[in-house]
Write a protein that binds this DNA or RNA. Structure first.
Length: 418
RNA sequence: GUGGGUGUAGCUCAGUUGGCAGAGCACCGGGUUGUGAUCCCGGUUGUCGCGGGUUCGACCCCCGUCACUCACCCCA
């Protein structure tokens, strides 16, 4: 026998009973209420979109992309993140010519060819929002607040919001120069020097203690912001305080994508193992032009579904479950079986979640199936109940059982339906 | 890409100095020919990851390999 097939490395299956779908929906709930419209972009795009959008210096682009060539010799890449594709779709559709800001939400799989570990997969799920066409600091605050409510709505209390400003084209170049000069004086390995040459900011979030020790006293962007960026950042923090969203300043925060400007943030949780980020995002006022589009400011975030599930587990919070069945029909006998099939269809048509015991099982086995279905009520429908014109309806939680006339069954169960 | 750990039933795992392959859960049936979740009885399920080696004999020791997993790096 051939070896059984397995899911590819770093992928997983969402199996029955998983809170995955409910959690993914819940994470986007606040955004939906705030006017963020649902969009979907392709799972693969021209490789160039990510090379230009995400940044040629990033780890994502240099070593983590699933890139392939199609039969027309086009280089395509499975999306490693969502923002580039959503922005591309918005520009292609000319949404920037309509009312601004354009507010979008999305959900779906992303792909990065990393070595898998706890909370890290090669195909993983993100939900995201993007708000395009406005640099209003109140919008920055709204976006951060939406993520905070998404986590709070699930019952999470251990998510911390780290916020900083990365400056813009007016102030970052000078800062970058100062940081480069500082880094030049340090004792760094060749690989880190290479990274520093491409993007010195990324050295700041190096996790190694020997590197961090040397970064003591490094110049910080927060101290080098131009007046406009400083005013913007203070306005954002003011709005967040007014909204009651607790944030922590994080002057060393640098994200792994090159397109961020000004407001940049990350949501972290302590219970995830080595990966602490459950979500992150920021402003990307230069990205549109980077992609060959018009000047179009934007801000957004992406939240990791798997890591949110890990956080729920770490906090011992019950994840939202699947909707439960109201009725489970247990047929006894051939005539009753035929009637049960149509009864269940009628119940479903009336909006009552219903199922029945397939397989002509005995009463005991069928009742067991009713119990395991999670249904609130079992309807025992035997041939003799058909003749009597009434069927016992059993409340599976209390064990209480009452006969209900067959022609009243549908309305009776409709009333019990949530 | 680099390091550590783990691979035994569908799941979670025992398995003694190398000597017949095990438990719990789950699943199916019965106890109760019309009542689940409790209880009792019975039953089904194995390439001990894979390939070599050592040995009278290997789940156990050795070598290789693959997979999973955790961590580095990075990030959701």
């Amino acid at each position: 026998m051939a070896a059984p097939l397995r899911a590819p490395k770093g992928t997983y299956d969402v199996l029955p009973g998983s809170p995955f779908l409910a959690v993914r929906e819940a994470l986007l709930g606040p955004a939906a209420l705030a006017g963020y419209d649902y969009v979907e972009a392709p799972v693969f795009e021209d490789t160039e979109l990510f090379a230009r959008g995400v940044g040629a210096s990033t780890d994502i682009v240099t070593k983590e992309m699933f890139t392939f060539t199609d039969r027309g010799d086009r280089s395509l890449t499975l999306r490693p993140e969502g923002t580039a594709g959503v922005l591309r779709a918005a520009l292609q559709a000319g949404l920037q010519h309509g009312q601004l800001p354009v507010k979008l939400r999305y959900a779906g799989p992303m792909f990065r060819a990393e070595r898998p570990q706890a909370g890290r997969f090669r195909q993983f799920q993100q939900v995201g929002v993007e708000a395009l066409g406005s640099d209003d600091p109140a919008l920055d605050a709204e976006v951060v607040a939406l993520a905070a409510s998404a986590y709070a709505g699930l019952g999470l209390t251990g998510v911390r919001a780290l916020v900083t400003s990365l400056g813009d084209a007016a102030c970052r170049p000078a800062y970058r120069e100062a940081l480069t000069a500082f880094l030049d004086g340090l004792d760094l390995d060749a690989e880190t020097r290479r990274r520093a040459a491409i993007n010195p900011l990324r050295v700041l979030d190096d996790g190694r203690p020997e590197v961090q020790a040397q970064l003591e006293g490094a110049p910080l962007m927060a101290d080098a912001l131009c007046d406009a960026c400083r005013a913007h950042h203070e306005a954002v923090l003011g709005h967040l305080a007014a909204l009651g969203v607790a944030v922590e300043p994080a002057p060393r925060l640098v994200r792994g994508l090159d397109y961020y400007t000004r407001t940049t943030f990350e949501f972290v949780h302590g219970g995830l193992g080595a990966q602490s980020a459950v979500g992150g995002g920021g402003r990307y006022d230069g990205l549109s032009q980077e992609l060959g589009g018009p000047p179009l400011p934007g801000i957004g975030w992406a939240l990791g579904v798997e890591r949110t599930l890990l956080a729920l587990e770490a906090e011992g919070v019950a994840a939202p479950g699947a909707p439960r069945l109201t009725a489970f029909v247990v047929p006894l006998g051939a005539a009753a079986k035929a009637r049960a099939v149509t009864l269940v269809a009628e119940l479903r048509a009336a909006g009552v979640a219903a199922d029945l015991a397939y397989g002509d099982r005995g009463l005991k086995g069928a009742m067991k199936a009713a119990d395991r279905s999670g249904a609130a009520y079992a309807v025992v429908l035997g041939d003799r109940d058909l003749e009597a014109g009434a069927a016992p309806v059993k409340d599976l939680r209390t064990g209480e059982q009452t006969p209900v006339a067959l022609d009243a069954l549908l309305t009776h169960l409709q009333e019990q339906s949530p």
